[in-house]
């Protein structure tokens, strides 16, 4: 960190030193992504003769296509989208219902209920995974996408309830009163007033739930054992764990794992960097 000299003019040349330092850091953060891209489009022979740092001689996509077909990547993507999408929607719905009762309804003992929900979210999944695994087997949900959807709907709802309750407790009372005077019942107030007004917060939650669920690993790893049900993270993690892949295949798998994330990032960049403050500071 360069320090601007106290005496120097406010916009002295020192500022370029600071900017350069930041750019170097930014490049360092991005280099791993670049290396992955670089090597995913090399032939295995190119890789072994020229090493991982050389520029590719051409664009070779067979490695990627080969990997895609071998792990049936399309299926994994579909599973991830299905699971994360369902969880995001269901968890937002349940969070809204809970937060309506706690933040606007001010149900008795709401402080304790909120604490319970927050605890449920911070509790380590390690302390839930074995009983959940056992219970899922008992009720025949083991190795189904539904089981993972149920579990994460609950975990994300716990966080969403905590966050939304405090957002809704600041909901303008006048708007609620006006709707009540017009004869709307509680359900109508929720659907016609509270939900539309808090839509911005809800969409932030939706994006976050989607991405958090997409990135989950431990519980999907335990629950989704067959190829047909696995998510992207689990399939790639398991392959990596078996140490059967050669260098170019690994980079192909890394690239395919990274791409959806980059896509989300580009689409939701503003929501993510803005929304995280909503998530964390609460």
């Amino acid at each position: 960190m360069a320090t601007p000299q106290a005496g120097a003019r406010r916009y002295g040349p020192g500022r370029y030193a600071v900017l350069t330092a930041y750019l170097v850091l930014a490049v360092m953060m991005l280099v791993p992504f670049a290396i992955v891209l670089l090597n995913a489009i090399k032939t295995p022979r190119e890789y072994s003769t020229n090493g991982p740092l050389a520029l590719p001689e051409g664009v070779y996509l067979d490695g990627l296509i080969d990997f895609w077909q071998r792990v049936d990547y399309g299926e994994k993507l579909l599973n991830s989208v299905l699971i994360s999408g369902s969880v995001a929607v269901l968890a937002v719905v349940l969070s809204v219902l809970n937060a309506y009762a706690l933040g606007i309804g001010r149900v008795k003992g709401r402080m304790w209920i909120l604490v319970l929900f927050l605890m449920a979210n911070t509790l380590p999944q390690e302390a839930l995974v074995y009983p959940l695994y056992y219970l899922a087997k008992q009720v025949g949900l083991y190795d189904t996408r539904l089981s993972v959807i149920i579990v994460f709907t609950c975990i994300q709802t716990a966080f969403g309830t905590y966050l939304l309750s405090s957002v809704l407790s600041g909901f303008p009372r006048e708007i609620l009163e006006a709707a009540r005077i017009d004869g709307a019942n509680r359900l109508q107030v929720l659907l016609r007033v509270v939900v539309p007004v808090s839509r911005p917060t809800l969409s932030v939650l939706l994006v976050f739930f989607f991405i958090w669920t997409w990135n989950e690993f431990l519980i999907p790893l335990v629950f989704l054992v067959s190829n047909e049900t696995q998510t992207v993270s689990v399939a790639l993690g398991v392959l990596q764990g078996q140490r059967l892949m050669d260098a170019t295949m690994t980079s192909a798998s890394a690239l395919l794992g990274v791409l959806p994330t980059i896509a989300f990032f580009v689409i939701f960049q503003r929501t993510l960097t803005r929304g995280i403050t909503v998530g964390a500071i609460k």
Partner: peptide, 11 residues
Amino acid sequence: VLPIAVAGIVW
């Protein structure tokens, strides 16, 4: 934003 499993593979 990267899934940790994928970050792990990269690294």
